[in-house]
Structure formats: structure tokens, C-alpha cells
Computed example of a mutant assay.
Amino acid sequence: MKRKNVKLMMLAALFPMLCWAAGEQPISLGTPTGEIQGRVMLPDVERPPVVLIIAGSGPTDMDGNSLLGAVTLKNNSLKLLAEGLARRGIASLRYDKRGIASSAAAGKEEKDLRFDDYVADARGWIELLSEDSRFSGIFVVGHSEGSLIGMLASEGNAKVKGFVSIAGAGHPAYEIIETQMSNQPAEVRQLVKNINDSLRAGKAVNDVPVGLMALYRPSVQPYLMSWYRYDPREVVACLEQPVLLVQGDKDIQVSVGDAEALKAAQPQAELHLIENMNHVLKSCDTVDAGVQQATYTNPDLPVVEELLNVIEKFIKP
């Protein structure tokens, strides 16, 4: 009996090593509407910190690629981010948002989707990671719209040790939309503002002009109402964890001013501006949209090394 107990103790001691395998592994999160699929990237070290990587807006998958009609914008930005962190001894979990790519089955009808669904999913992943003894601590990294999702998932969550915003908006969605419409005729700008004001008040708009139907179609209005509730400046101000704000100065989708707005709202946050980094985390020395387009469709371009360095320093000071 004594010899048998010794063997069991040896197996127990070896078990963590037998289970650990550096590389990429599939993982899934069960939700009431179906499973969300993800990938865990494991470095060649035991009990590393792990980051939950949250993708940005639209049909963006876990690798940072988007399908726009028949065109795929494949840049692998988030996959390259995960691989770069793994080389620095940091694990990661990235996932296809509900309704996107391998998580398509978990999608809801557009009229039923809410911004808070994405936040709940992120919280679900954090809970799952917190139960995994392979990791020493959880950090959240949100890119673009994923920044606000990550902030909300981290707010009041003691399981999150730190939050990183990459190219996160510093203004609420309705302000961003109105800014994007600033070059339209005054009549259109006023229509947009009127619709936004109504949605912010929780009132649906039935008489949307044909020219604005793609943006404000009835089925998407409930989602917009749920999204408009949040001002990133107010949310980041509530975070009690250490916060790192990262912004590229060649980003043509989110400005340095957005990062500065978040910093002003959360003075304790660390702000790092990266020279010649664009929205897909690649090096580009111009804000010319035509030139930048090539970086959005080139998965062979690496992500900016400085980005990996500042995240590593934040997670492993």
C-alpha cells in the first residue's frame, strides 16, 4: 500500500507537466444561445499570466480579420499579437465574437442583439480563465470597440489584474457617428443628431430616411440604444485596476485625441503613444488611406514591436 501511495504522489507531481503543452489550443464558452469558440496561446513557461484579447467592431474575427461583403481584410493583427506575447512568456485567449466565424451559431437575430451581450461574453471568458490553474493572473486587452467591452467586463471585477486599451475610442458612439458625418450637408447632420437624441432617450425612430437606413434600420436600433448608454471616459474612470492606454499616431480610425480623453478621465492610467503604428497594429509612416490599405490586407507584416514591449512591461513589470 505504501509503494502504491508513493507512485500516486509521483504521478500527481508530474501531472501539471504532462498537461502543459506550449502552442495553440481550442477552447469554447457555453452561452444560452450557443458556444463561442476561441484559441488559447500558451508560451513555453509554466503558470504564465494570461490576457483576454477582445476584437473590435463589425465582423472581426479572433485573428483581427474582417469579412466585408465578398472581401476579406486579412492582416492577422490579433493572432500576431498573441504570438508575440507568447514569445515573451505571456499566454492569451482570443475568440470569435458571437455570430462571427466559428462562433456564428451563438449569434442572435439583429433585433435581439445588445452591446451588453458582448460584455457578458467577455465576463464569461474571464470567469473561465479564473478557474484555470495554468495561469497566474488575468489581464484584459481590448482593441478598438473591444476596448469599451473590456472596460465594462473589468469594472468591479477583482479577477482582472489590469486592463489594456489599444486604439480605444475616447467618446461615446453617438458622438463618433456625428463626427464621421461632419462633412455631410447641414440637413443630414441634423437628421443624424435628431435620430441619435431619440435613441439615447430610448425611443425608436420609425421614419428613418432611405439614405440613413443602413445605419439606423429598425432592427439595429435596439443595439444602438444599448451602445449609446456608455461613455468610455466615464467607464475608464471607474476602473480600479492598473490601466494602460496604447495608441498609434498613424491610426486613421481612432485618434490620439481619443487616447488623451481616456487619460484625462483616468489620470492614474499609463498612456503610451506609438510612432508609426496604425489601427491594425502595423508599421506605417503615413495617414494616407490608400497607402494604409495595403497593411490591412497583409498578414505577413508583423505587429509593431514596441506594442509588444509596452504590454510586456505592463504585465510583467
Rank of each mutant, 00 (worst) to 15 (best):
H279F: 08
A82D: 03
L78I: 08
A91V: 04
V220C: 04
L81Y: 06
R3T: 15
P16S: 03
I166G: 01
D251G: 00
K193R: 14
G89S: 05
A204R: 11
L81Q: 04
E145C: 03
Q37H: 11
E275R: 04
K193Y: 05
S226K: 07
D96E: 15
E24C: 01
G38L: 00
L307I: 04
I177Q: 13
D207Y: 13
L8H: 12
E127K: 14
V254H: 00
T31L: 12
S182G: 10
E270Y: 01
V220M: 10
G34Q: 10
R94P: 04
C284P: 01
E46N: 09
L81T: 05
G99T: 09
V246L: 02
A201I: 05
K111C: 02
I100K: 07
G69F: 12
S28K: 07
I315A: 08
G248I: 06
L29A: 12
L239N: 09
G202K: 11
D251N: 00
P49D: 01
I54T: 06
L191T: 14
T297P: 02
V6P: 04
V192L: 02
M151R: 05
D197R: 09
A104W: 03
E24A: 13
K159A: 14
I274F: 06
A167L: 01
I54N: 06
R47F: 07
L199E: 02
N196L: 00
A70K: 14
R189L: 05
Y228V: 11
A82I: 02
W20C: 04
G248E: 01
G23F: 02
I138G: 08
F163N: 10
G156Y: 04
K282M: 09
D44Y: 06
V303S: 10
Y216R: 03
A105C: 04
Q293N: 13
A204K: 15
Y223W: 12
I90T: 01
S219Y: 03
G69C: 07
F115V: 03
T297N: 08
S130V: 00
K282N: 08
P242A: 09
S103K: 10
A153Y: 07
V291S: 06
M151Y: 08
E46G: 11
K7Y: 05
A120K: 15
L81F: 12
P43F: 08
A264C: 03
D44S: 14
R98S: 05
T31S: 12
L244C: 09
S102N: 06
D61C: 02
A294N: 11
G56C: 10
L215E: 11
E187F: 10
S198M: 12
G124T: 07
H143K: 00
P26Q: 03
E155H: 05
Y174T: 07
G170D: 04
L273W: 00
L80T: 11
S147K: 01
T179M: 09
E187D: 14
P302F: 10
L129A: 03
Q25P: 02
L14I: 12
M62N: 08
V304G: 07
G170S: 09
F15H: 01
